[in-house]
């Protein structure tokens, strides 16, 4: 077992989990409020990566240099891009369908996802090709015991952790958070209490989109290769992670993401040919035992 579960593999799994966590947080938030599997969430992440890419070269040309301030500037830019696209998508694709059957929104979400990907791929100056993502923060390696750790792993972990805590604070202790919880529980009652539910939903999408944008930047740095279809697979995995943790539940998304990351890593190390299949099998078993995810609340069926 030494070659399967050891310090290095645990760090590998945590890093993979952090990227999933960043995407899963936005996923689960949006789901918690509007009960919509936002298939386009992975594409918000892709747009974040491209925005950071563009911003880096723009800032580099104007200001010059890399390093800390540059990283913050590109991060803000990526989050802004994610936020804007999420707000636009919500306004024009999802809002008109708010009170229609849920599944029509789902198909629209798939349509939006395809639309964003194909537009990016057909736009001449973006194109379908792979692009090398710049090292906004130079990479450095250090050792913990026998395991090699990259500073990116630390950054990914730190950002995911910070965002999760921030989000929990937001949802639990702010007025907006209270409104979000209210809308999530009962839209009509929330409206009667004087909550502008469209505003709350739109704010949720924006926060989720900004998170996806940040995830895009971090993923771009960690795996420095971006292309228009880069969001599909991580989006799917993050969605699975969110479901595993109990969809709509913020700490659950985080937990689910790290379990996915570790499970995939150990499964691949155990048998790389069947790696992905094993990860899915674990997921199915967990869901069979806990049908509402690990941290999902038991809700009684409404009669």
């Amino acid at each position: 077992m030494g070659s399967i579960i050891n310090a290095q593999q645990i760090i590998n799994g945590l890093q993979l989990g952090s990227i999933y966590a960043l995407i899963a947080l936005g996923y689960t938030m949006v789901y918690g409020i509007v009960r919509l599997i936002n298939f386009a969430h992975g594409d918000f992440y892709m747009i974040g990566a491209y925005a950071a890419y563009g911003a880096f070269f723009l800032f580099n040309a104007v200001l010059g240099g890399a390093g800390g301030p540059m990283a913050v500037a590109t991060l803000l830019f990526a989050m802004l891009a994610g936020l804007s696209i999420a707000a636009l998508t919500n306004r024009f694709a999802y809002r008109p369908l708010r009170y229609k059957p849920k599944l029509s929104s789902l198909i629209t979400a798939i349509g939006v996802s395809m639309f964003i990907e194909y537009v990016f791929s057909a736009t001449p100056f973006i194109g379908a090709s792979f692009r090398a993502f710049p090292a906004i923060i130079p990479q450095s390696l250090f050792k913990i015991g026998s395991a090699t750790v990259s500073n990116y792993v630390v950054i990914d972990l730190a950002v995911a952790g910070t965002l999760m805590i921030g989000l929990t604070v937001l949802v639990k202790w702010t007025k907006l958070g209270k409104a979000m919880r209210a809308v999530s529980q009962d839209k009509d009652a929330a409206r009667l209490m004087g909550i502008d539910i469209e505003k709350v939903i739109s704010a949720t999408f924006m926060i989720g989109g900004a998170f996806a944008g940040a995830a895009g930047l971090l993923a771009g740095m960690t795996y420095p290769r971006i292309f228009p279809y880069m969001g599909i697979l991580p989006g799917l995995k993050a969605f699975i992670a969110a479901v595993l943790g109990g969809i709509g539940n913020i700490p659950g998304a985080m937990l689910g993401a790290y379990i996915m990351g570790l499970a995939e890593t150990f499964a691949s190390a155990y048998n790389s040919l069947l790696g992905e299949g094993i990860a899915f099998a674990i997921l199915i078993l967990v869901l069979l035992v806990r049908p509402r995810g690990l941290l999902g609340e038991k809700t009684a069926d409404k009669i």
Binding site: Q15, L16, Y223, M230, S272, E276
Partner: peptide, 20 residues
């Protein structure tokens, strides 16, 4: 070692390779 199509993280397999 194999990796799934579309993967971006190969470290699980590569760790095994490097350790061999």
């Amino acid at each position: 070692e194999a990796h799934p199509t579309g993967a971006t993280d190969f470290k699980a397999q590569l760790t095994k390779i490097v350790q061999a």
